[in-house]
Every structure is written in C-alpha cells, then in structure tokens.
Write a protein that binds this DNA or RNA. Structure first.
Lengths: 239, 239
DNA sequence: CATATAAGGTTATCAGACAACCGTACAAGA
DNA sequence: TCTTGTACGGTTGTCTGATAACCTTATATG
C-alpha cells in the first residue's frame, strides 16, 4: 500500500468497535435492509482501509449483538432487530432522559414484588443487613457518595431477602445502573434537601418487611419509588 | 504450565463461541476472580489448541458481554462485578427446578406491568403484531415447536407495545430463557393437552389490551401466568 | 430430465510478523 | 537517599498471506 488515504478511519481507539458501530448504523437506519447481504469481508476491509482481521472482529461484535448472522461460504446478513440475546445496557443510553425514565419504570414493579416477597421470606440476618444499610444512610449527615452506596445496599438487601437469586441479580443490576446515571448527572445536589423524607420512606419499608406484612411492604415500596420518580421529575403511570 | 491439556475443544461449530463460553464459565463460577488477569492470548491459544485469532474473537465476545476488559500492552482482566454492563444467565442453571421457579416468579410482575402499559400505549401496528402471533398459535394444530415460537412472539409483541425499550429487552430475554428451558426439559408433551386453555388466556389478554383497559389487561396477564405456573407444577405466591 | 461433478466465491481458521503500548528494573544525576 | 530518564521485555492491536471448509451455480454425464 503505497498511498495512504486519510479520509478513512481515524486511528486512536478500538478500530473494530468503531467499524462495528458504523456498519451497525447502516443496518439500524435501514440503509442495509433486514435479510440483505453485507459486502464481503475483503470489500469491507478495502473500503474502510483496514485489514480483514479488524472487519472480522467488527462483524463478530455485530453478530453477538444479534444484528447480523453469518453463514460460512455464503456471507453475512442483516437480521431482524427483534431477537437479541445479550442483555446489555450501555451506560451512555441512560443520559437520555426518556431511557432513564423507561428503566426506572421497569424497576418499579420488580421492587414492589421484591418487597412483598421479602416480607414473607426474610430471616433475621437479612433484616439485620437491611438495618445496617439504613443506619449508614441515616449516619451520613449529607447525601454524599456514601448515602448513594447505602441506598443501593438497602435495595440489594431487600432483594436478597426474597430468597430468589434472580430478584437480587436483576434489581442489583438495574438499581446500580440507575444510581450510576444519577451520579453521572450530578443530580445528587437536588437529593440532599430531600434526604429526610427519603429516609423516612425507607424506614417504613423496613418496618413493613419486619412485620411480615407483604401488602403493606408492597405499598411502602410503591410509595417510595413513585415518590422518588416524582422527585426526579419523571412522570410514570401507576395502577 | 508445562503439561499440555489434550482435553481440548471439539471441532464442529463456531469455535470462538465455545471458547468464550468456557472462559466465561471460569469467570462467572469464580475460578478467575474479578480483577484477576487472564492468561495471555498466546497461552490460551496453546492450551485450547487453536490459533490466536480464535482466542481473540472469543475474548472480544466476552468484552462485549462485559465480563472482561482488555488493556493494550497489559492484558485481559475479569471485570469487577459492579462494572459489569451485562446480565448473564447460564442456561444450565435453569435445569434446577428451584431456579426455574425463581425466574418464572421474576417474570410475572414484569409481564403484568407490561400488559397494563401495552393497553395504554399500543398503536394499531403493534396490535396487528399481537394478532399475528395469536394466529400462528391458533393455526398450529399441535403445540409444536412453532407453537412455542408463537407464544414467545406474543409476549414480545406485548412488551413492544409498551413503548418502553427495557420491557422488551428484559421480557424478551427472560421469556426466551424460560421457553428454552421448557423445550430442553421435553415438557412440551404436557403442554399439548392444555393448548386450548392457553390460547383462550392469550386471547383475553389481547382483547383487554385492544380495549385499552390496563386494569383488565393486568388481571388477564396475571391469570395467565399464575395458571401457566400451576400447569408447570410451580407454586408461586401471589398478592 | 435427473444426477453427479467441477469451479468459483465466501467465510473460518491458521501462522507469523510488526506496531503500539505498558510496567518495571536499572542506571545516572541531584 | 531520592528522583528522573531510559532501555527492555511482555502483551495486546493490527496487518498480511495462505489454507480449509462450505455454499452456490454452472456444466457435464448418464
């Protein structure tokens, strides 16, 4: 390759990822129709000005995300966007207000159910963990980083008390994404002034769980989360 | 590590995926601790008896799923659990009856909420997709493979009608895992005889969504899923 | 007309090399 | 002693070229 073409891809960071993103855009924006065949690896390599290895890695990434399917000896094809397999949430997506609201909305029924189950199934050690998180929350005079960590720990403790590993897995995952997004948005400031009401809500959840009253626990959790949504200026339907 | 491991990898289909699965198991089962460094690509290639390209593609896949992070010039590391951006469920776990029940229990509140939101937000094209899935379900005279696919499509269509991408993401993910587990357990036989009642339940969900009645849609979905759980001999609390 | 075979194209895998980058050890200087 | 600069080895990232496995299509053969 004697002449170097600088109109191509800027170097700098993870070539395959950027090429995958570019091809992925071609697909999701419809310039490559579902079912249509992608250019061959050789051709893609030449058009992007990279080697075939990079193109292969990019296509592998798209295949993982379920955007393309490859058939040996035939080619790579764009698939329906419908069935993707790896449950992955890009943290960047949550900077979008719509997406943040959507994830919060998904969280609500899960946490409500978890509160009810925790009321039924918790054992003393788990209640102790809940109290511990609550203490850390109360101890923090300001709603600092530590307060957020404690809040996360509280909800994880509730989820653990369900004795259902998947509630812990999913709620921990979602709640962590949400609190990271809140942190990234520097929205902690607005939370400081409402720390008391938040703590009070947590306490009432804790008490309902401790008294083994699933209905009351669900109500308390619902009240807490809808309130939290409102404080974040999210409008969420509730039934 | 002087001795060569000849229990290597069976050829046959998609080498990188199987190697990724194997390494992923090492990580998620804790034999490689979070933050720990993976063996070098050269070493992995030699131990698995494949070329470095295959190992690289496998690691790229794991990086996509968020299980490892790579740093050029240093190595590949298992990610700390907090930073994982993907949620992984080993299909093998669901052969355990307890775990299967737990995942099903998690699914219920999500689907109920989704039914209510779908009733509020669906547009005609989405209702058409629901009807399409329903038609495929009715058309299959027996509860064959196609019937299961149609069932999955139905629940995905409901989730899509919420206009909340995360409901589609999570419900699609969970429902697919569950239907795969049912399929693997050869439990389809017991489903054949109850196909009529199942279809009737789906129809009532569809009708409630179509009439934009969220409360009725939630009730219909709750009735359907608790019924399905009972038919699978799962005991699940409901409030 | 049906079937077998050959040809060409495409992805999958392999092998080896160089580039970019990182961490560390070590020497030189203050 | 402490700091700083530098050389070195190791690791991932990328490139190149070749071979194997596989599919599609066209052609030959009966």
């Amino acid at each position: 390759m004697a002449t170097i073409d600088f109109s191509q891809i800027r170097r700098g960071e993870h070539l395959p990822a950027r090429i995958a993103a570019q091809i992925g855009r071609e697909i999701s924006e419809g310039r490559i129709a579902p079912g249509e065949k992608l250019p061959t690896e050789h051709l893609l390599a030449r058009t992007f000005g990279v080697s075939r290895s990079v193109v292969r890695e990019a296509i592998a990434q798209l295949r993982n995300e379920g955007l393309v399917e490859t058939r040996q000896g035939v080619g790579a094809f764009a698939t329906e966007i419908e069935r993707r397999q790896s449950l992955r949430i890009e943290q960047g997506d949550l900077s979008n207000r719509e997406s943040f609201r959507d994830l919060f909305q998904l969280r609500i029924p899960l946490e409500i159910e978890a509160a009810g189950l925790a009321a039924l199934h918790h054992v003393p050690e788990e209640l102790a963990k809940i109290d511990e998180a609550l203490a850390q929350m109360t101890g923090a005079e300001k709603w600092t980083e530590q307060g957020i960590v404690a809040d996360l720990a509280f909800h994880r403790a509730i989820a653990a008390a369900t004795h259902n590993e998947y509630f812990l897995l999913f709620i921990g995952f979602i709640a962590e994404r949400i609190s990271l997004a809140i942190n990234a948005a520097r929205a902690t400031a607005i939370l400081e002034e409402i720390v008391e009401v938040t703590i009070a809500e947590h306490v009432s959840i804790r008490d309902a769980v401790a008294s083994r009253d699933p209905v009351k626990a669900r109500e308390a959790m619902r009240y807490h989360l809808t309130g939290a949504a409102a404080r974040l200026d999210l409008t969420i339907e509730s039934f």
